[in-house]
Structures are given as structure tokens and as C-alpha cells.
Amino acid sequence: MMNKLIFGRYIPGDSLIHRLDPRAKLIASFYFIAVIFFANNWQSYAFLAVFTLGCIALSKVKISFFIRGVKPLIWLILFTVLLQVLFTTGGNILWHWWVFTVTDYGLMNGAFIFCRFILIIFMSTLLTLTTAPLELSDAIEYILRPLNVVHFPVHEVSLMLSIALRFVPTLMDETEKIMNAQRARGVDFGEGSLVQKMKAIIPLLIPLFVSSFNRAEDLATAMEARGYSGGEGRTKYRKLDWHLKDSMVVVVFAVVTILLILIRN
């Protein structure tokens, strides 16, 4: 079930993109998502597509991976595109029936939205495929740090985040195990009517919650026994280092932005 999910997974590797500082990657991906909305003509989208493909090539991860990452979302994307195509007014009318109008302007907009979706998914997949979850949570902690001023519990949030990330695979394994155990006891998951399907989830959900509670209790005890007493006065084992290549990312993105502004209408 989870095997098909590529989006949000990490593939260990050793490429330029893998070695970048996670803060640089995180900020760059968010920035890219913002910047993509500047694009408004063919040339600018083509430019961004080339740039994205360049980044993917640098990561040495197969492009088929990214395409597979889009697959689960393809219907949502096509639905949005279809709405855009059918309901946009303005420009030359090519086809008209009842409330639906297809115009050349609408078609173009649909195509742009399609590109925008794909590029955003590619970029965020690139981030998660090349950045280990713990690196990501370190980066988020660093970026959120200024919020300490307004008494936002940055340490607690980032601790929760790293624990949550650490336990995602463990919980997935556990889910799989319990599912198998219940299947062996005659439960059919995902078969029958909606009500039957919902009922079949109970023997999975309850043990999962119970084991999460037990796990949380054990983990809290183990942390206290090892002297954890909150964020105050802690040192860090994993230190993030900002190198020249990370500064280069900033420069590259600045150049991309300037070029984009020149290219757009």
C-alpha cells in the first residue's frame, strides 16, 4: 500500500544536491514554489522546466521516480486543469455548449496550471528524496528559531517533529504487522461495502493506538532516565554547516529570479 508512495521518501545518495545544507534546500524549495507564480508565458515555463530538470539531473536520482511521485496526484491535477479549461472566459471562443466554454486563453491557462503543478511536485519531491528526515527537522528548527522571541516553543515543536519523523517507518511496519495478524484471523481489508470496510479498520486502529500510547510512555521514561529535562541549556550533536556551495544556491536562485522577470511579459 505504502510502497507506491514516492512523495516524501528519502533515497540515500551522494550527489551535489544530497550534500547541500538542508536549510539551503528547504528555503530554496519554498522560494521556488513562490517564484513559479511569476511565470506567465511559454518561455518562462520552459525556462523553469529546464532549471528543474537540471536540478534533478544534479541529484542523480532517476527521473522515473519523480514521474511516479506525480501519479497519485494526477487525477487532482487533471480535474483542476479541466475546470480551468472549461470555465475560463475571455479570448477567442473555440467551442461553446451550455455553461461550458473553451477558449484559447482557457486552454493556455490550463496548460500553465498543469506545468505549475508538475514543477512544484518535482521540486518538493527533489527536496524529500535528497534530504534525510532528521536533516529536514534540523533545518526547520533553525529556520523557526527567530520565533523564540514571541515565545513560540521552537525546541518542543522541533523535538516533536523529529520524534514523529523517526517513528513514521516504525509505525508503518507496525501497521503492516497488525494488518497481517488480523488478516490471518480472517479480516478482509478493503473489501465489501463502505460500512464493512470501515468496520474492518477497527481491529487495526485500536491496537495501533494502544501501541502508540505504550511506545510514548516507554520513550518518555527512557528520555527522562537519560537526563532529558527540556530545551534549556542543551548542546547539539548534529551541527549544520553552511558552505560555499550553499551560498551558491542563493546566487543561482537570485539569477533565476532575475532571468524569470526578464522573460515574463
Binding site: 504487522k177 497488525i178 497481517n180 495478524a181 488480523q182 490471518a184 481491529p203 485500536i206 491496537p207 501501541s211
Partner: peptide
């Protein structure tokens, strides 16, 4: 019938 490792996790 299969008794998995740590089968107590399947009680609900």
C-alpha cells in the same frame, strides 16, 4: 493459523 511475533499487539 499464524501466531506472529509478539502477538499481544493484535488484541483490540
Amino acid at each position: 493459523g499464524i501466531v506472529f511475533q509478539f502477538p499481544e499487539a493484535q488484541l483490540f
